[in-house]
Simulated assay, not measured.
Amino acid sequence: MLNNILMAEIMPIVEEFDEQTNNDTVYEFRLLAAANNFIEAASRLPRASGCFPPCGFQAQGAVYNCMTCQYDSCEFPLDCPVKEITVQENNMTQMWCKVPFPLPTGAEIIWRHAIEMTMLMDRFHEVTVGVDPLYFISSARPEHSGTYQCEIFSQEHSLVRIYYYLTVVPLEQLGHAELQDVFEQALLPGGQFPPLSPKDPFPLWVPRPAILTTCLTAMFLLVFLTLGVLYWLSNQIRTIHSDPAQETKSTQNKYVIHC
Rank of each mutant, 00 (worst) to 15 (best):
L2S: 05
I5C: 02
I5N: 01
I5Q: 03
I5H: 05
M7W: 01
P12D: 05
V14D: 05
F17G: 03
N22E: 15
N22W: 03
T25Q: 13
T25C: 03
T25G: 08
E28D: 12
L31D: 00
L32F: 06
L32G: 11
A34I: 00
N37I: 00
S43K: 12
R47M: 08
G50Y: 02
C51H: 01
F52S: 09
F52M: 04
P53D: 08
C55P: 01
Q58H: 01
Q58L: 02
G61E: 01
A62P: 03
V63C: 07
M67F: 09
T68R: 11
C69D: 10
Q70I: 03
Y71F: 13
D72P: 00
D72N: 13
S73E: 09
C74V: 02
P81F: 03
P81V: 04
E84H: 13
T86D: 07
E89C: 06
E89W: 05
M92Q: 14
P102L: 03
T105D: 15
A107C: 10
I109C: 05
I110F: 14
R112E: 15
L120P: 01
L120W: 06
F124P: 11
V129L: 12
G130Y: 07
D132Y: 05
P133S: 10
F136H: 15
P142K: 11
E143L: 11
H144C: 07
T147G: 09
Y148T: 09
C150N: 12
F153I: 01
S154V: 01
S158K: 14
V160K: 07
R161L: 12
L166I: 10
V168I: 13
L171P: 05
L174Y: 08
H176K: 14
E178M: 09
L179P: 00
Q180P: 00
Q180E: 12
V182K: 09
V182E: 06
A186D: 03
L187R: 14
P189M: 07
G190E: 12
G191A: 07
F193R: 07
F193N: 04
F193M: 10
P194C: 02
P194N: 10
P194H: 10
L196I: 05
D200Q: 12
P203H: 12
V206D: 06
I211L: 14
I211H: 13
T213Q: 15
T214K: 10
C215I: 15
L222P: 00
V223I: 15
F224K: 09
G228S: 05
W232R: 05
L233P: 01
L233M: 02
N235P: 00
N235Y: 04
P244G: 01
P244L: 00
A245H: 03
E247R: 06
T248M: 11
K249S: 07
K249A: 14
Q252C: 03
N253S: 10
H258W: 10
H258R: 13
